[in-house]
């Protein structure tokens, strides 16, 4: 499948990935994340059930402390 991840086109072998699978494939290890699929906020409790498929627009933003 082809998706837009953080404004960039990316290809994956799988037809579908859960959010947690995507994080694993991309090696995103940060803990404090905000994730949107096609503009909709995905809560942490939904990372195992929400799926990403061809054509989806995904935002993964990780937040770090400091200010």
């Amino acid at each position: 499948m082809n998706i837009i991840l953080n404004n960039r086109p990316e290809s994956f072998k799988a037809d579908k990935l859960t959010v947690n699978e995507l994080l694993k494939v991309k090696n995103f290890t940060f803990r404090m994340l905000v994730i949107k699929i096609n503009g909709n906020l995905i809560k942490k409790t939904e990372y195992d059930t929400s799926t990403i498929s061809d054509g989806d627009k995904v935002m993964v933003m990780h937040l770090v402390s400091g200010g």
Binding site: V34, L41, K43, L63, V64, S65, G67
Partner: peptide, 14 residues
């Protein structure tokens, strides 16, 4: 300052 608060406001505004 704290990332938990940053996440909270981002989710609230979205």
């Amino acid at each position: 300052d704290r990332k938990e608060m940053k996440q909270m406001i981002v989710e609230t505004v979205i």
